[in-house]
Design a protein around this nucleic acid. Structure first.
Length: 855
RNA sequence: GCCCCCGUAGCCCAACCGGCAGAGGCAGCCGACUUAAAAUCGGCCCAGUCUGGGUUCGAAUCCCAGCGGGGGCACCA
């Protein structure tokens, strides 16, 4: 039987193979998942969905190649794999492009989606094309609105006036993530602060759960991402202490991580832009009021950059007001200074200059008292300098080698551990014990308590832009917030005709008169829709659930489907989303859990972060002139070669420098593998048992190792092993039993199935050339034959004092005594040992024996 | 300043629970085939694992301290 027929078949023709199989897949839709009777085990493999800005680029190519390896692997393992794709299609770039070109954002967005869809299909990503969603479709965003209303009902969506980031050039509010080093991410102008009333999601209420549940993900998420999430949430534990204020009824509460230093507090500092500061100043003299007002204005003029500059000298004004230390009754002057932040803790701190660097800097600048209450030279912890032998601590002190105890002189706060002094009931205690004791005391007297505080802030979700989900709230003339009833959803975005999308600091939707003006549902009087749209991170915080039921017109998703598929077994995407997107999705999942819509509390059971594709050591960009176009690469080397290069380049989480890898080499390998499939002369039903044992062993060892390698994301190693096997087949054909050996067919088929994870076109064509029916994508792994995995003999290394002196072939089942005897008798050992005698023997059969000589 | 990764041949990268430092590729060199070149096939060359300590019979692997690179958080009380 001849498998190669036409002359064209003799060469690996990338274009022909791609065109052929692309047409087949378009017809058969092999990766659509819809059979409700399917009883196979399930996997949900999800790639982060793309934002439709232009065509796919190299970064997409890497992410989708790697996600596809995982999806295709589980299919070969006999799982039904849900691997959907959609578009995160609301957002600023569409709006900006629309403004620039005078288009409707819809045109730009959906044209780009079409282009990306075509590219993805060409790229042979094994997506379920029947579940596509776009977040900018009303069928999708109506459920954002539904979700918003559920949060609103629970008190988790609320409005508040607050200082927000404001770009004076773009005339818009910016999210924290859009502020890079104090500048607007888009126009690079300095960002200022503006007080606005905005919608927030109360994510801080979930801070503890968001932090603690990360422990469940240990090992399944990259440790880097876990660390980033922990940093971002930023929980610190300590205590709240209530201070009485002279001339004020209410106490002021401060947060501190060092309540043990309470006796060392010598003044109090409040944030100048806090309500408290304004109130305290108001109760002071006219002169203080003026000085405070000046300072406040100065603070607000200074940019984020200035404020974060740590070399900047401390500034502040004395408010001529006093607080009373709750344990000593001591009078503490109150200052306003911008090194205290209004929105962290309570916007006020108890200053302990001896033991806090910032407080010390401030105290030294303004001549405030400094009192040491922790003797950091006391021998309590390892914080002491190393004491050279023969010298006592006293001698060192005399020699001036120990740090002096006076922070005022040195300018260095004593932040280390030590023994408490000048602290009444705390004297003599260590830091940890002092913290416990003082909290106890404060609680007994009702003037303080253990407390936690967080860096995490509530999630500002309003945007004054057009291209997003309208917030489903109507404002009554009396200020009432009236949620739009579920049955009236979606609140559709009005058409852009007649709207000015140019950012002006208020939402463009406010100008859509016919849309924004609605009757008050209570009495028909004039009312207005909320003109803001939602942050697009809302869209992506639950899309993985919509994929389970993307066409459902009755609800956001079917809880039964969620039960079947969710949470996502494997999530794949860039580390750029390591904080915000993942945090928001985790938050919304917990909310949906609390509301009873899902039965799990974490959305993504495992996470793989792929690195970036860079060029010559730096990120690709037009301005650098090092941009590599994906379409050029695909044209030049073929889809499979590019996909294989992405997998082979190295560990997935590391960056790929395109200058260091060889797509041409990948193409060469694919051609080599493909050619073998045409050389096989045995029929598909040949009995392989009699095939060349060496090749069979190699092939079966690969089968045995493959699951572990893929599941550890060692795709580069799998590709290397496939290359090895192809080399083995080549050798068997050219220098061994020849192409007619059954082992050659067996190994070639294993290569085809293995390659189906990385190079779907080539694998499919090989499978056909091998005379196999059906798609290779579902062929499944052959079971490794255990008899082929057992080695007849292994090489045992024999060491003398840890150095290899000989190696012998032994049966794998050899016992320790026997092995030791062989080792002692080996020529290399006798030579190395010479006159010396063996003191002890470490035998680890069958791999190693170590003979240790007497000293 | 605090925290998280990573440092192995000229380059990209392997090396299981600590046990022969090398699987694979790129580049280079040599050879076969060819009138020649390309393609193809075969072969060869190449490091003692960033540095210094420690643990161990034995360390690329574990621990400590540095150095170099990447990343996150940061006047966060």
């Amino acid at each position: 039987m001849t498998l190669q027929d036409t002359p064209r078949d003799l060469e690996y023709d990338v274009e022909r193979i791609q065109a052929k199989w692309l047409a087949v897949w378009e017809r058969t839709r092999p990766f659509s998942v819809s059979d409700p009777a399917d009883k196979r085990p399930r996997k949900y493999v999800l790639d982060m969905f793309p934002y439709p800005s232009g065509d796919l680029h190299m970064g997409h190519a890497e992410a989708y190649a790697l996600g596809d390896v995982i999806a295709r692997y589980w299919r070969q393992q006999g799982f039904t794999v849900l691997h959907p794709i959609g578009w995160d299609s609301f957002g600023l770039p569409a709006e900006n492009a629309a403004i620039k070109r005078g288009l409707d954002p819809r045109e730009w967005t959906y044209a780009n989606i079409e282009q990306q869809r075509t590219s993805m299909k060409r790229y042979a990503a094994s997506f379920d094309w029947d579940r596509v969603l776009h977040t900018s479709d009303p069928e999708y965003y109506r459920w954002n609105q539904w979700l918003f209303l559920r949060l609103y009902e629970k008190g988790l969506a609320y409005r508040k006036a607050s200082w927000v980031n404001w770009c004076p050039f773009d005339q818009t509010v910016l999210a924290n993530e859009q502020v890079i080093d104090g500048r607007c991410e888009r126009c690079d102008n300095l960002v200022t602060k503006k007080q606005l009333t905005q919608w927030y999601f109360r994510i801080t209420e979930y801070a503890d759960r968001l932090l603690d549940d990360l422990n469940q993900l240990e090992g399944a998420w990259p440790s880097k991402v876990l660390a980033m999430q922990r940093n971002w949430i930023g929980r610190s534990t300590g205590a709240e202490v209530d201070f009485e204020i002279e001339g004020r009824d209410q106490r002021v509460t401060v947060f501190t991580t060092r309540p043990d230093t309470l006796f060392g507090t010598t003044f109090m500092v409040v944030a100048p832009d806090s309500d408290l500061a304004a109130e305290l100043a108001a109760g002071s003299s006219a002169e203080v009021r003026m000085r405070f007002q000046d300072y406040l204005e100065q603070t607000q003029r200074s940019s984020e950059i200035d404020r974060q500059d740590q070399s900047r000298e401390k500034t502040g004004v004395f408010l001529d007001r006093y607080a009373l230390n709750p344990v000593t009754g001591e009078r503490l002057p109150i200052w306003a200074a911008d090194y205290v932040l209004a929105d962290y803790g309570h916007g006020a701190v108890m200053a302990v200059p001896a033991h806090d660097q910032r407080d010390l800097d401030f105290a030294r600048r303004f001549g405030l008292p400094v009192r040491v209450v922790v003797d950091t030279n006391a021998p309590i912890t390892g914080a002491l300098p190393v004491i050279p032998p023969g010298m006592s601590v006293e001698q060192l002190l005399e020699a001036g080698d120990l740090p002096t105890l006076d922070p005022v002189a040195t300018g260095e706060a004593l932040t280390g551990d030590g023994r408490m002094i000048h602290s009444g009931p705390l004297d003599g205690l260590s830091k940890q014990n002092a913290i416990k004791r003082i909290i106890q005391l404060l609680e007994e007297r009702g003037v303080g308590r253990a407390a936690k505080t967080y860096r995490l802030r509530d999630w500002l979700i309003s945007r004054q832009r057009y291209w997003g989900t309208p917030i489903p709230i109507v404002h009554g003339a009396d200020g009432a917030l009236l949620p739009v009833p579920d049955e009236q959803l979606p609140v559709l975005l009005p058409p852009t005709e007649g709207l000015d999308l140019q950012p002006q600091g208020t939402s463009p939707l406010g100008g859509a008169t016919g849309w924004v003006e609605v009757p008050d549902p209570r009495d028909g009087s004039p009312a207005r829709r909320d003109p803001d749209t939602m942050d697009t991170f809302v869209d992506s915080s639950w899309y993985f659930l919509r994929f389970l039921d993307p066409h459902d017109a009755e609800r956001a998703f079917d809880p039964k489907e969620a039960e079947k598929w969710a949470p996502v077994d494997q999530y794949v995407g860039g580390v750029t989303h390591a904080i915000l997107h993942l945090l928001y999705a985790r938050f919304i999942t917990k909310v949906l859990f609390d509301l009873g819509y899902v039965s799990f509390t974490e959305p993504f059971s495992a996470l793989l972060n792929q690195g970036m594709v860079i060029m010559n050591g730096s990120a690709m960009s037009k301005s650098r002139g090092n941009l590599v176009r994906l379409s050029d690469q695909l044209d030049e080397h073929g889809v499979d070669a590019i996909r294989l290069t992405m997998a082979f380049a190295g560990p997935p989480e590391e960056d790929i420098d395109w200058a260091d890898v060889s797509p041409a080499g990948s193409a060469k390998f694919l051609a080599r593998a493909w050619r073998i499939s045409g050389e096989v002369t045995t029929a598909p039903d040949v009995e392989w048992k009699g095939g060349d044992p060496a090749l069979r062993r190699q092939a079966h060892r690969l089968l045995a190792d493959l699951p572990g390698l893929i599941e550890a994301f060692k795709f580069n190693v799998v590709v290397a092993r496939l290359m090895e096997l192809v080399n083995g087949i080549r050798k068997t054909i050219d220098q061994g039993p020849g192409a007619g050996d059954p082992a050659v067919r067996e190994a070639a088929e294993i290569v085809a199935v293995g390659l189906s994870l990385f190079a779907p076109y080539t694998a499919e064509d090989m499978w056909e050339r091998l005379g196999r029916e059906g798609s290779v994508a579902f062929a499944g792994w052959r079971k490794p034959d255990p008899t082929l995995l057992v080695q007849e003999s292994v090489t045992c290394i024999i060491q003398v004092d840890g150095k290899v002196r000989d190696r012998i072939e032994v049966p794998p089942t050899i016992g320790a005594p026997e092995l030791e005897a062989l080792a002692r008798a080996s020529a290399g050992v006798i030579r190395a040992l010479g006159e010396r005698t063996v003191a002890s023997v470490i035998a680890r059969p069958p791999r190693v024996v170590n003979l240790v000589t007497a000293a």
